[in-house]
């Protein structure tokens, strides 16, 4: 196992990609803090599954766009496990609309959760990781943050911002043994992408050289790699995990 004795905090871990990441880290030996915003029952389910794997886990409710709430979550993590080795900034939402139709509120909501949330969580764990002189921060961006995507100005701006934030944080924290990398998933089958119409899905499939949609486990596998010693010489990078969609 690659992550024996490690403690991980995964935001937005009650479902979709986050859920699979939490389970993937646990399968490699990590204890996991399962953050959720609204889906308490599903978060508890993930905790139960992790415990079945023989690892420890707790579910912690927190709105990642609220600094005080984030500080409490990190405190709960340290109080429970005494340390924190891995942060996965995964929590995210979409509120798609054409730029011409996008409401200010739709813009703000997505930026607050998907970008400000990453900043707040990263800031909150940095103190502990600096003390430990080690840490892994993994940010879940999106391939559209690299390529752009009509109807997602808010989401794309946030995900693109996450890539810049990843690079800057990587440079600031490198001297303290902390690496920061991002993953840009392509089209992954989750609740978030189930909302898309069949037409849109068909169109996207044509753009994927590996000719299939990704599974949440495709992302979780790369998170495990970035969380482990195997990736120790990498920082500030964005890995495209998208079946070759954007090269």
């Amino acid at each position: 196992m690659k992550l024996e004795g490690k403690v991980a905090l995964v935001t937005g871990a009650s479902r979709g990609i986050g859920r699979e990441i939490a389970l993937g880290l646990a399968k490699q030996g990590a204890d996991v803090v399962v953050n959720y915003s609204g889906s308490e029952e599903r978060a508890n389910q993930v905790v139960a599954e992790i415990k079945e794997l023989g690892r420890n886990a707790i579910a912690v409710q927190c709105d990642v766009s609220n600094g005080e709430s984030v500080a409490n979550m990190v405190k709960a993590t340290i109080d429970t496990y005494g340390k924190l080795d891995i942060l996965v900034n995964n929590a995210g939402i979409t509120k798609d609309n054409l730029l011409m139709r996008m409401k200010e509120e739709e813009w703000d909501d997505v930026i607050n959760i998907n970008l400000k949330g990453v900043f707040l969580c990263t800031k909150a764990v940095t103190r502990q990781m600096m003390k430990q002189r080690s840490g892994r921060i993994i940010n879940i961006s999106s391939i559209v943050g690299v390529s752009g995507n009509p109807g997602q100005a808010n989401y794309v701006a946030a995900k693109s911002g996450v890539i810049g934030l990843t690079k800057t944080t990587a440079k600031e924290l490198s001297s303290r043994g902390i690496t920061v990398n991002a993953i840009a998933p392509g089209f992954i089958t989750t609740d978030m992408t189930d909302k898309l119409t069949e037409d849109v899905k068909d169109l996207m499939l044509k753009q994927i050289p590996l000719a299939r949609f990704g599974e949440p486990s495709d992302i979780a596998n790369v998170v495990v790699f970035l969380a482990s010693e195997d990736s120790r010489y990498m920082t500030g990078q964005t890995l495209h995990v998208d079946g070759g969609m954007v090269m």
Binding site: R127, M130, K131, E172, S175, R176
Partner: peptide
């Protein structure tokens, strides 16, 4: 700068 932040911590 980071050393100073750590000192304060």
């Amino acid at each position: 700068s980071l050393d100073v932040v750590e000192l304060v911590m």
